[in-house]
Design a protein around this nucleic acid. Sequence first.
DNA 1: CATTTATGTCAGCCATGTTGACATATTCGA
DNA 2: TCGAATATGTCAACATGGCTGACATAAATG
Lengths: 171, 171
Amino acid sequence: MNGVPGAAGEGPPREPAYDLIELMFFAYRDFVSDPDHVLERFQFGRAHHRVIHFVHRHPEIRVADLLDILRITKQSLARVLRDLIEQGFILQKEGQADRRQRLLTVTEKGQALALELARLQTERFTRAIAASGTPRDQAVRFLYAMIDPDAREEVTRMITQAGRAVPQKDR
Amino acid sequence: MNGVPGAAGEGPPREPAYDLIELMFFAYRDFVSDPDHVLERFQFGRAHHRVIHFVHRHPEIRVADLLDILRITKQSLARVLRDLIEQGFILQKEGQADRRQRLLTVTEKGQALALELARLQTERFTRAIAASGTPRDQAVRFLYAMIDPDAREEVTRMITQAGRAVPQKDR
DNA sequence: CATTTATGTCAGCCATGTTGACATATTCGA
DNA sequence: TCGAATATGTCAACATGGCTGACATAAATG
């Protein structure tokens, strides 16, 4: 109780973490900038990147599940999905159990693009981990803890279950 | 030379770091979402947030320097700056040495908003650091290392020099 | 005094998000 | 079996926040 900043009993620190806030801002900006140049070649933007990434990660994903992950509307998705399908990066397949569904999967061309984009971002992480001496799992835990608590479970599931078909509702 | 993944001589790992890539995506999404609700009350968006943040951090900043930090055009800045000035969050002052300059500073009202927004994001970092057991300076080093090498020097200067007047060019 | 610089502004375009309304095909449930 | 619910698609209109290009003004500079 002596007015020293950081003394016990104050709860969370009062000083704004300007360094972390600004580092996060610039780190993310550069993190998403690598793919931009590659995407330009196809007249694609970041919205296309997100779609092809998550479709690549979740073959035969349902449109509704993709919308849940991206948190956008079907109208927003439709625009970029049209481009990706027309240019042969993604294909649609009728659901077997439920023929209303249009299951989305990347083509070989789409997979190649998704892998190239992931490779660029992976290299940034690899370099950052090495240069900063951060244990990889420490970085994972830190970023995970930055996510809203009520979204974490779903993110964990998404990351660990990727590649498996998205479970359908009980029938 | 036995085909074991991760064996020496392969250079950087070939496996895409999907977990880190997706965690970064979701972490950033939530990181910027806290301020959104506060900004809504003033009909402000994320562009307003960035401007008020950096003006708060750099009192009497020149328009040209703000544009450099944000990497946007003056036309883009003009739109949000107009709102912020009209609603009394930022004020312009003629430069003393150079009267062409319009030095930008937050008002008290603007400072209050900037501090509130920074507080929300700081709390997220504080919780994440505690929950993940990441030393604070480890998080700083990691995020710093995620930034493009040729941008790091400027970011360091920006973070450490904040609050001081931006140095003018030699005269 | 001519040129450069700092800033502002108008107009229009693009990417990507939104809401609302409506259409179609299919599945589900009473 | 039939009406309701569901999965998806589409059209139109609008908001935000980027962009380029063209031009204007005031002040500094050589």
